[in-house]
Structure formats: structure tokens, C-alpha cells
Amino acid sequence: MGNSMKINLQVWRQKNAKTEGRFETYQVNASPDMSFLEMFDVLNEELIEDGKEPVAFDHDCREGICGMCSMVINGRPHGPKQAVTTCQLHMRSFNDGDTVVVEPWRANAFPVVKDLSVNRSAFDRIISSGGFVSVNTGNAVDANSILISKEVADTAFESAMCIGCGACVSACKNASAMLFVGAKVTQLSALPQGQPERESRVVAMVNQMDAEGFGACTNTGACAAECPKEIPLSVIATLNREYYKAKLNGK
């Protein structure tokens, strides 16, 4: 390891949601080509060898699409780079000898499970409240039986990029989930399949979002700036529009 680098890590350690957490300091020798999660693998190997409790962190695909790697690195969700998840962040983004502070998503709606791993079930409950389209059971319908223009497909796809990672909530000063809910509402209200539940969906999802304890939007734009999938802030405007329209129609 000719070009190894020393990183001083300050990692949030918390046994479970009920106990108080604190920062622990570790030193790791990393290669600049490692991903941030691989650096944590190295740290955990060392901790296990020393007979210590390894750092709990969520990860699944390690290719930027699962949205599990909920780490706030030096105050920014998924670290200093634009449009990447933690697994796509490489150690070459840091300098030899840097001190790096790593903490979990902090929002009351996302309680800490352990260390850097948080419970994002609140998002699942928002989706179950209305983030779906109803489809008749039976034979699969031919994919091209409903025509969708390229523009509409593009709009829907832009929002469908959302991986539900929660970086928007973690970046927002109010821990608001509006970029997430906005992305889902924009995607489904753009498509013909989403029309039957269009108004009841947006009201149900916003009610559930409020009930889960997410904050209100104050339009700072931090969510869109930190979104690894670059969901634009305009989805929140679409969410507002859809919601007020549904309310005007007495929903």
C-alpha cells in the first residue's frame, strides 16, 4: 500500500434508540481507491480482531441505487461530493491526515437503530398510505396499451429516480420529507396509471408525512442540493400544487 492515507475518524456510537450516543475516535489506514464503506469494512475488521464491537452501518447494493448508506459525513449527507451515495464516495475525496466526522441521519422520524444505522420505516408507511397505483389482477397488460409521450415519461422518470435514501430529510434544517413525497407524487400524477387515485393519494401521503413527525418545508433547497439522484426542487412545487388542487376539490 504505497499510497495509503491516514484518516482520523470520529464515529457516532449508539447502542440503540433508547440509549445516549457519543463520538468515538478511530484511526484508519485507507487506500485512496477505497469507497467510504470499504474504509469502514477495514475499520470493522480491525475492531473485530481487537475483540471490540464493530460499527453498525447499513449497506446493500454498493452501487448507488439501494439508498441504505445513511451517513452524514462532515455535516453533509453522503459526504462532500455531488450526486453520490456513500458507497460511491471514494477516499480520494479526502486528504491524508483529515479528521472525518461520521454520524447517522438525525431526524425524530428516523430513530437510530444502532450506531450509523437508522430506521426509515416512516417512508414505507408514507408509500403505503398512497404512493401506489391500483392495478387489476389477471393477465399482465401489454406494456404499450397505454400511450405515454416522451415528455411525460421523462418527467415521471426524473422523479422515479428517487431511491428513498432520506438524504433530503437529513439535509433539511426542519427534517422535512417533502422532496421524497414530492418525487413520488410528481411521478405518479404525471402518468395515466396514477390518475384514479391522484387527489386522494396526495392528501393521504401529506397526512401520513405530517403524522410521522417530519417538519414543514421552508424552501432552503438543501434537500435538492444533497439528493444523490438530483431530484429537482420543482417536485415540491408540484406536490404543493397537487395538494391545494385536491383540497379545493374537497378531498
Binding site: G21, V101, A107, N108
Partner: peptide, 8 residues
């Protein structure tokens, strides 16, 4: 909505 604040 965020009882525990960020350190970073």
C-alpha cells in the same frame, strides 16, 4: 423534528 443535533 430533530432533537439530536448534528455535530458536523
Amino acid at each position: 423534528k430533530r432533537s439530536a443535533k448534528y455535530s458536523g
